[in-house]
Structures are given as C-alpha cells and as structure tokens.
Amino acid sequence: EHKIILYENPNFTGKKMEIIDDDVPSFHAHGYQEKVSSVRVQSGTWVGYQYPGYRGLQYLLEKGDYKDSSDFGAPHPQVQSVRR
C-alpha cells in the first residue's frame, strides 16, 4: 500500500489531502488548491512535482515526516501532482 498525506501549513496543520494507492496528476482537479507545506508519508515511496501533469521540480518523498517543504527540498511550498 502507498499512503501520503499533504498539509497546507507546516507541522501538519491546516487543510489536508490524503492519497491512498493512487497517482494524482492535478491536485486542483481533486479539489485541493492549497499550498503543500508539510507531508507525512505513511507507506511507500512517492515523487511530488511542482506543477500539474508531473512537471517542474521533482521531490522524492520516502516514508517519514516532512514538517516543512524545505525538508523535502522544495524552495516554495508548491506541489501540484504526485505519483507512486
């Protein structure tokens, strides 16, 4: 199983989107239009992308907690697509 939770604010606060065993080419299409400032990967390895359609900067997200976007190497809290 692959499970990831994306949070609007640092330290796992604010609006969140939970994804289980699915690739998401556009967070906006899924109704999530917030920034991504923290991430909790509960299982599996994911790649987050700066822009929709798996474009832009890529961020490797392995199991663990990323309490701020800088923890996974993002210069800005901008992640708009993700895949396993």
Rank of each mutant, 00 (worst) to 15 (best):
P25D: 13
S70P: 13
S70M: 08
V47A: 01
V41N: 00
Y54N: 03
K3V: 01
H30Y: 12
Y32F: 12
K16E: 07
V24F: 03
V36A: 11
E1Q: 05
P10V: 03
Y7N: 02
Y66Q: 02
D21I: 04
L57D: 12
I5P: 03
Q42P: 05
V39D: 02
P52T: 05
R40S: 11
E62A: 10
S26I: 01
D23W: 01
H28C: 14
S26W: 12
E62W: 06
D22T: 11
Q58A: 11
Y49E: 00
W46N: 04
Q50R: 03
D68P: 11
K35N: 03
D68W: 14
V79A: 01
L61E: 00
Q42A: 13
E1V: 02
Y59K: 05
H76I: 09
N9Q: 11
Q42K: 08
I5V: 13
F27W: 03
R84D: 02
I19S: 10
S70D: 07
V79H: 01
Y7M: 00
K35T: 10
S38K: 00
S38P: 01
H30N: 10
H76T: 07
N9M: 07
G53F: 04
S26N: 10
I20T: 05
E18R: 07
R84M: 06
M17V: 11
H76F: 08
Y66V: 03
E34D: 08
K15I: 05
Q50P: 04
W46D: 11
D68K: 14
V36T: 13
K63V: 12
D71Q: 14
A74N: 12
N9L: 09
F27R: 01
H30F: 10
V39M: 11
P52E: 12
T45A: 08
D71T: 08
Y51K: 06
E8L: 00
L61H: 03
L6A: 05
H76S: 13
K16Y: 15
V36G: 03
S69I: 15
L61I: 14
I4S: 01
S37T: 12
Y32V: 13
K16C: 07
R40P: 01
K67P: 10
P25S: 10
R55P: 03
P10S: 07
F27S: 04
F12P: 00
M17D: 12
A29F: 10
L60C: 13
H76D: 12
S70V: 12
Q58W: 05
V82I: 15
A74C: 11
P52C: 05
P25E: 10
K3N: 14
G73D: 09
A29L: 13
H2G: 02
V47W: 07
W46S: 05
H2Q: 08
K35I: 09
D71R: 11
P25L: 05
Q42F: 06
D65T: 04
P52L: 02
G44K: 03
P10L: 09
K67A: 13
S38T: 04
Y54F: 06
D21K: 06
R55W: 04
G44H: 01
D71K: 15
S37N: 06
E62S: 07
V36L: 00
Q33T: 12
S69C: 14
I20L: 14
G64K: 03
D65M: 06
R55H: 09
G64P: 01
I19R: 11
P10H: 04
K16L: 07
L61Y: 03
Q50N: 02
H2Y: 06
P10I: 07
D22K: 11
V39T: 03
K67R: 07
P52I: 02
S26L: 07
R55I: 03
R55C: 07
R40H: 05
E1W: 02
E18W: 08
P25R: 08
L57F: 12
G44I: 04
A29Y: 13
E1L: 08
V39G: 02
D68N: 04
I20F: 14
H2L: 02
S38W: 00
V41S: 03
Q33F: 13
G31S: 06
Y7Q: 07
Q33M: 15
E1A: 04
M17H: 14
Q58K: 07
Q78Y: 15
H2I: 04
G64A: 06
E18M: 10
L61K: 12
F12H: 14
M17W: 08
G44A: 02
